[in-house]
């Protein structure tokens, strides 16, 4: 009995290892040379596609006109991200601002980081046009240029930027490590990469309410929310993309809404609605209403409002430069730790 269980376990392990061996090289290919293998225009056949980028593009087109002038949550995240620039003594003359909430970044920049030239880019042409209109209206701050492009295919010359900021945009990329590698390559040596992405705890209340409502009304569940990066992944992402001095920190924001419908309105205005390939295109009216009711009853506060959690992961990384501090090679120490302890411990006993 025991031996058969062990054999089954071994087989499973083998299978797992086999699958790993299969997966790894393919993933490697997609992340390191995504750019080279895309001649066929189809976007690389072997790559795993999770998000429908075309749909996301349309979401962002919609968000361009649904957007509020100033969004409390987005502004808080953008401000927190830009705050990090004040911690650096270095100035960043040329900067690239990737999609997501780049509008808020531009508005809240207020001369931080010594940025002289700013390039703002997004997938959605409408969004970019909207930014340009608001830029023309304010007419202060750095010289700004606009490009429509996809974060997964960054059209930026190698070693040309001092700073790359991405505020709440990168969590919709299919190949996040690949996108980050492209960012690193676009940075000059000793250039800074700053990113804020939504983490796995985001909208957990809505996730639960959706699941319960779908179980109740439809007898099964379909993915209504996108998978998000976990905090523990973020550090790995940075090192895997080859950034030095990686830093990750997490912030949780709770936003209160009058009802679940208002929450969904807000998500639409941010362009953060579901863009999974495996999504169910049909949402029944009574399931939606049940979700709202369950949300209210499970998480509603005394004053009738409902809270929604947004977990934001902030990532900081630098492109390698000889001036940066570095850990010494493993095994290069010449003094034993026990000797050090002896040296510092009070003489005897």
């Amino acid at each position: 009995m025991a031996s058969s269980a062990a054999a089954a376990a071994a087989r499973r392990l083998l299978l797992l290892r086999h699958r790993h061996g299969h997966l790894l090289p393919k993933r490697h290919l997609s992340s390191s040379s995504a750019a080279d293998s895309l001649d066929d225009g189809g976007g690389g056949g072997g790559r795993v596609k999770i998000f429908d980028r075309d749909l996301k593009r349309r979401h962002r087109d919609r968000a361009a006109w649904a957007m509020r002038e100033a969004d409390g949550f987005v502004d808080a995240v953008a401000d927190n991200l830009l705050d990090r620039l004040e911690d650096c003594r270095k100035a960043f003359p040329s900067a690239l601002c990737l999609g997501g909430s780049a509008g808020a970044v531009r508005r809240l920049l207020r001369g931080r980081g010594g940025i002289e030239k700013l390039i703002m880019m997004d997938m959605s042409a409408d969004m970019v046009r909207k930014w340009r209109e608001s830029e023309n209206a304010t007419d202060d701050g750095p010289e700004t240029h606009f490009v429509v492009c996809d974060e997964e295919f960054l059209p930026i010359k190698e070693s040309s930027q001092d700073l790359i900021i991405s505020c709440l945009g990168l969590h919709w990329t299919n190949d996040l490590p690949g996108a980050m590698i492209q960012c690193r390559l676009a940075l000059k040596p000793d250039g800074l990469f700053l990113a804020a992405i939504l983490g796995g705890e985001t909208l957990k209340e809505l996730r639960i309410a959706c699941t319960v409502a779908q179980m109740e009304r439809e007898g099964g569940i379909s993915p209504r929310m996108s998978p998000l990066a976990q905090v523990r992944d973020a550090g790995n992402l940075l090192t895997r993309a080859g950034f030095t001095l990686p830093g990750v920190d997490v912030d949780s924001y709770t936003v209160k809404y009058n009802s679940a419908l208002e929450l969904v309105e807000h998500l639409r205005a941010m362009g953060e609605t579901n863009a999974l390939f495996q999504r169910n295109p049909v949402l029944k009216r009574d399931t939606a209403l049940a979700t709202a009711a369950i949300y209210q009853s499970m998480f509603g506060l005394e004053d009738g409002s409902i809270p929604a959690t947004f977990q934001v992961i902030y990532m900081t990384g630098w492109r390698e430069h000889p001036s940066q501090q570095k850990a010494k090679r493993r095994g290069s120490a010449t003094i034993s730790f026990s000797d050090i302890q002896k040296q510092f411990s009070p003489s005897e006993n």
Binding site: A35, D36, L38, D39, S94, I119, V147, C149, D150, F153, L154, P155, I156, K157, E158, S160, Q161
Partner: peptide, 10 residues
């Protein structure tokens, strides 16, 4: 123009 390259081939 000085910083833009082809998104596919760089």
């Amino acid at each position: 123009a000085a910083v833009l390259v082809c998104p596919l081939s760089k």
